[in-house]
């Protein structure tokens, strides 16, 4: 009855569902602030900064599946590649001390927004005819109404949403990393290198 495929430690089994919960619960908070962002990758970026790329990829995968199930919107599943890319990018960012300063964090966040939008728009355009989540679609509609070709409308709409979203995501993760109590930080040795302290 040996099964060596279960390589997830109890610590990751505890951490990843909580990170998924963070990804999906942030919406409740941004709704109150009327900020046009989702922050649905905060948990994924955080896991990348705390424990590394592989756990972040798993967080991204489980997040997108859970998102799809909890909101009963199978459309989200098509954006799985974006979540996985966010995890990969955040893993690299953490290794390169992206969280050394706020300016650095925002820059890395904007970089991620650029690539994430580039990845998301063909999915939005070709699979869903440019129609996806509420706010982004409204922007698409307005741009199309102004005479912008559909492809560019979808691109600009994704971009405007993702740039702000990912920059704020990185800022929030930076704030969390900085305020980790010492005892907790000691249990996440990677946090130090993400902050550029090693």
């Amino acid at each position: 009855m040996q099964n060596n495929r279960t390589s997830l430690t109890p610590r990751l089994l505890a951490l990843i569902p909580l990170a998924v919960g963070i990804n999906l619960a942030m919406g409740k908070i941004v709704a109150a602030l009327a900020i046009p962002v989702f922050l649905d990758t905060v948990g994924t970026v955080l896991v990348a900064a705390l424990v590394g790329t592989w756990p972040a990829l798993i967080t991204g995968l489980v997040s997108q599946v859970t998102f799809t199930v909890v909101d009963a919107r199978i459309m989200w599943l098509f954006f799985l590649p974006v979540q996985l890319f966010v995890a990969l990018y955040a893993g690299v960012a953490a290794q390169r001390a992206a969280f050394r300063s706020s300016v650095r964090a925002v820059a890395w966040g904007l970089g991620l927004g650029l690539v994430a939008a580039t990845l998301a728009w063909p999915i939005a355009l070709y699979v869903f005819g440019g129609v996806t989540a509420g706010g982004v679609t409204v922007v698409t509609t307005v741009l199309t109404g102004l005479g912008v070709p559909l492809g560019w409308s979808v691109f600009f709409a994704s971009m405007s949403a993702d740039l702000v979203d990912k920059a704020i995501t990185f800022l929030l993760v930076l704030a969390v990393l900085r305020s980790l109590p010492l005892r907790m930080a000691a249990r996440f040795p990677r946090a130090a290198s993400a902050l550029g302290r090693q």
Binding site: A14, I22, L33, I35, L46, L172
Partner: peptide, 25 residues
């Protein structure tokens, strides 16, 4: 708004991280 986001987001994230130790044990 950004300030507000930190005031709301931080307790949620840090609270979740606080659970990790006990849950993994």
């Amino acid at each position: 708004r950004v300030q507000g986001l930190l005031a709301l987001g931080m307790p949620l994230v840090l609270g979740a991280l606080h659970e990790v130790d006990e849950r993994s044990l």
